[in-house]
Amino acid sequence: MTLPYRLFILNFAGLCFVIWAAWLGYVQFVFSHDVSHISYLITAVFVASMAGVFLGRTAHLERVEVWLVTLGLIGNVVGFIIALQNIDTGSLGTAEGVQKVAASLLAGMGVAFCSTLVGAVAALWTSINAWMVMK
């Protein structure tokens, strides 16, 4: 089987997986819980990279893998910053203060975990495409 057919089958299977995850609500969950929206940037870089693959340009794949993981890790750091920026230990004595701290922690953790997940999945997908192209 030639390379274009293998790439098509691989990426079609990956797309089916994403559609299945969206049908179950996981894709929407990930993007709605990333209040920094870095997951959209990661997705845009990934889609542009895959478009390049199907246009016959593959020299960028190794760099894009690193970029996707790095963007996911940046999202992780941003998430922790968001989680910790509004913590006021003096307000923990009231129910409203505890709720505010909990909301900040949850928003930050959403960014941290969701952006890291998107970056890791996109990097893995890109890595598999790079492996097939180099094979």
Results as ranks from 00 to 15, higher is better:
G119E: 00
F80M: 15
V101R: 01
A103S: 07
L124T: 03
A59N: 09
M109W: 12
V64F: 06
S91E: 14
G93M: 13
S104L: 07
T126E: 02
S49A: 11
G52Q: 07
L73N: 09
G72V: 05
G52W: 02
G75N: 13
A44K: 05
T116K: 02
A48N: 06
N86V: 08
W67R: 03
L106A: 15
T94V: 11
L71N: 01
S115H: 04
S49M: 03
L117E: 07
G79D: 08
N76Q: 14
L61Y: 03
V121A: 08
R57G: 07
W67K: 01
V66Q: 08
N129I: 01
L68K: 04
M109P: 04
V77M: 11
N86D: 15
V118H: 00
L73T: 09
S104P: 11
C114W: 05
N86K: 12
V66F: 09
A59K: 10
L41K: 06
L124I: 04
L55G: 05
M109G: 03
M109F: 14
N76H: 14
L92K: 00
L41C: 08
A83T: 12
Y40I: 11
L84T: 12
T43Y: 06
K100N: 14
T94Q: 05
L84C: 08
R57Q: 10
L84H: 03
R57W: 09
V111S: 04
A120V: 06
V98C: 01
V47A: 05
I128Q: 01
L117C: 12
F54R: 07
G72W: 04
M50K: 07
W67V: 10
T116Q: 07
L106Q: 15
L68V: 07
T116C: 03
N129V: 06
V64T: 12
L71R: 02
L61P: 02
G108T: 09
M50Y: 06
V53F: 04
D88K: 00
I42E: 09
V47H: 01
V45M: 06
L105K: 08
C114V: 05
Q99H: 10
A120Y: 08
Y40F: 13
T58N: 05
R57T: 06
A103P: 04
V101A: 15
G93T: 15
W125Q: 01
V111N: 01
A48V: 09
I87T: 03
L84Q: 02
V64K: 00
T126N: 06
A103T: 06
L92A: 02
A48R: 02
I81P: 12
T58V: 04
F46I: 05
G110Q: 11
A48I: 10
R63G: 08
L117A: 14
G56M: 10
G108R: 05
A123G: 03
S104G: 15
V66H: 09
N129W: 00
T70A: 14
C114A: 14
G119Y: 00
V45D: 05
L105I: 15
G75F: 14
E62T: 09
I42G: 04
L84P: 04
G97V: 13
L41A: 13
Q99I: 10
A95M: 15
G90R: 04
G75V: 13
A51D: 02
T43V: 10
V45N: 05
V77D: 07
A59V: 03
N129L: 00
A48Y: 06
A123I: 01
G52P: 06
T89L: 14
